[in-house]
Design a protein around this nucleic acid. Structure first.
Length: 278
DNA sequence: CATATGTCCTGAGAGC
DNA sequence: TGCTCTCAGGACATAT
């Protein structure tokens, strides 16, 4: 489930495409339902072919190629999508190939479940769709006060609110649990009930967890889905404190054991001893 | 407006 | 063993 650390790792892994020209865009034959591509492929081809890649950015959980025409090609991996500069895990889930010149290399979008999306935006469309009205400030680019301002009025549980990309961009289901554990905040606490000291702990924990996870190139869970741009697994799964560790002893306090609850139809993991309800 | 729920998708793993 | 079933959670459309 690519979240900020995984997507940032993908971004860094493909930086060598900057300066390359797009020679061709190919959709390989695929027995699965085609992934969403906007606009339709012939139009994408027309606008991409011959265009040069100026920069590779990240917008929350999306990888963004900035082109010399200022158009932006946005890769949205969602659950199982990968952006690769190497051989993909298999050929049958390869969704899009972008041939580069003069290197002759291929930038690939691979997606096992096919929930991912690839979109080409004009500068105006990009500002509209991924501007601050639709995508909140990046989780790693916020001050403690800004994080508090973005969330403090919500009646929702803090865990649920952290997943809202319009409030804070980049946090997903896995890192929300990890962050709240480090911040020692119960995931079901209403945002409105958090005290100043707790917002400060939340901000510090967000930076600590996400930066550590980026350093370890993200988390590859037991399904093996996530890979970096060279098709290698991440390492942060070996540092998870609570995620997917139900009934295991809490290594933080050494007393409690990890509990799983469901919030907004998604799993949440926490330690009741480290993260008391109040 | 804010918040809640349903939907898409494939493959791993559980259970019988 | 081999089958069926459930579940995983990104973003967004629709409902409350």
């Amino acid at each position: 489930m690519p979240e900020l650390p995984e997507v940032e790792t993908m971004r860094r892994g493909i930086l060598s495409v900057v300066g390359q020209r797009i020679a061709a865009v190919v959709r390989p034959p695929c027995r699965y339902r085609p992934i969403g591509v906007t606009p339709p492929l012939p139009r994408i081809r027309r606008r991409l072919t011959g265009n040069t890649i100026r920069a590779v950015e990240r917008a929350g959980k999306r990888v963004v190629l900035v082109l010399e025409t200022s158009d932006r090609l946005v890769f949205e991996p969602r659950m199982t999508g990968l952006v690769l500069l190497a051989e993909p895990p298999d050929r049958e889930h390869l969704r899009l190939a972008i041939q580069l010149a003069p290197s002759g290399r291929e930038l690939l979008f691979w997606d096992r479940r096919g929930l991912g999306q690839v979109r080409l935006f004009s500068p105006r469309q990009y500002a509209e769709r991924l501007g601050l009205a639709n995508l909140g400030p990046d989780a790693l680019q916020m001050t403690p006060e800004q994080m508090r301002q973005q969330l403090k009025c919500s009646r929702r549980a803090i865990k649920v609110a952290l997943l809202d990309q319009r409030a804070v961009a980049g946090i997903g289901n896995l890192y929300a649990s990890e962050i709240l554990h480090v911040a020692r905040i119960h995931p079901a606490r209403a945002c409105q009930s958090l005290k100043i000291a707790e917002w400060e702990r939340l901000h510090a924990a967000t930076e600590e967890v996400l930066l550590e996870a980026v350093r370890h190139e993200g988390s590859t869970l037991s399904d093996g889905a996530y890979r970096n741009a060279l098709n290698q697994p991440g390492n942060y799964q070996n540092h998870h404190r609570v995620y997917d560790r139900r009934d295991e002893g809490c290594a933080t306090c050494g007393k409690g054991s990890v509990v799983r609850i469901v919030q907004a139809q998604r799993s949440t993991f926490f330690c009741p001893k480290c993260q008391p309800r109040r």
